[in-house]
Amino acid sequence: MKTPDSRFYCPLISVGTIILDENESSHAVRVCRAVNGEILQLCDGLGHYADATITKADAKACEVRVDTVEDAPLKRPRLNLGIACLKDDALEEVVFHAAQTETDSIIFLRTDYSQEPKNSDLKKTVRRAELKSLVSLKQSKKPWMTRIEGPIEFDKWLKDYQGDLILCDIDGERKLDINEGAAENSNATPVTLLVGPEGGFSPREIEAIKTFKNGKVHLLNLGNTRLRARTAAIIALGKVL
């Protein structure tokens, strides 16, 4: 028996017989050409895995048998990405790449210089971003799916937030180790990396971040060149993960 080199999403993994949804069934049977008796790797995005044996290779309702459910060896990540709402498909592009990393959530923030229409609810963008996150979960074979949150007004989010912040700033450090000491602390403080829109956060917002009182504030230097917002997000994640 062989195992297709992909994970398959199953939101409710349990011991026994499971019917995969049509999308996952089609991927397994039509795309991967899986047949009865072969093994599929299931994940639920909540830190659980299972090897499932196909008992009925149906492209619309693939039936599998699970004998054992395993817990991921790693805890849920504590790093989040807060990014200003961007125009076009830039947010989806950021999610597609960032959700392949150990990032707990991505929050869409409405800032002073956000480039999306102020009267937009971004429902379509959020839904497409959620689908990108699901694809990234399976492709990257990580145990936790990156959650998509927002859009939310930056001031409201900052007022309610409890945890540490990382702001990209030319006077910041070139590298940050946010995991130092976290391994021994089961209640490690959440950390949110903040990336503004094209043109950055407004002076008012920068001051609010730097004077934040509900956690530590770290400054991170991304180099000597000016970066697009979507590029800055990925470079910054690479420096702190």
Rank of each mutant, 00 (worst) to 15 (best):
I54R: 00
F96T: 09
D58C: 10
P77E: 05
P151Q: 10
I106M: 06
L40P: 01
V15L: 06
E93A: 11
D21Q: 05
T53E: 14
C10W: 00
L86Q: 02
D164A: 04
N221W: 08
I106E: 00
K210H: 12
A90D: 11
A57Y: 08
P190V: 06
K2E: 15
S136F: 07
A229W: 00
D121Y: 11
G163L: 02
I235Q: 06
N179K: 15
G200V: 01
Q41I: 15
V66H: 03
K239H: 12
C43P: 04
G172P: 03
T111M: 01
T68S: 10
A72P: 01
L176D: 09
W144N: 01
K2T: 15
C43L: 09
A34T: 07
E184S: 14
T111S: 09
M1R: 14
G181C: 08
A84D: 01
V240Q: 06
A229D: 06
E207F: 14
E93P: 06
P197I: 01
L220N: 03
V69S: 05
S114I: 04
L165W: 01
A52F: 00
I170Y: 06
V35Y: 12
A129M: 06
N23G: 14
A34C: 13
S25C: 12
A182H: 06
E180W: 13
I148K: 02
C10A: 14
L158E: 04
L194F: 05
A90W: 01
G199K: 07
P197Q: 05
I18P: 03
F212E: 04
S133I: 05
K213R: 07
T225M: 10
A28H: 00
T17A: 08
N187K: 14
A183S: 11
I178D: 05
T231R: 03
N119P: 05
L131E: 08
V94G: 02
T68E: 12
L134G: 03
N214D: 11
L220G: 03
S14R: 12
R76N: 09
L20N: 00
A50E: 04
A236K: 05
D88H: 10
D164T: 04
Y49K: 14
C168W: 00
G37M: 10
L167Q: 05
L222Q: 00
P143V: 02
G196C: 10
A236I: 09
I234Q: 06
R174H: 14
C43R: 00
N214E: 13
I83W: 01
R174T: 15
P77V: 06
T53K: 11
D21W: 03
V95W: 00
E63I: 12
D169S: 08
L131V: 10
I166G: 01
K239R: 15
E38L: 12
K210N: 13
Q41S: 11
V95F: 02
L109E: 05
V66I: 12
R226E: 09
G223S: 08
T17Y: 13
E92Y: 04
N185V: 05
I13Q: 02
I83D: 02
I170D: 13
H48W: 08
V95E: 00
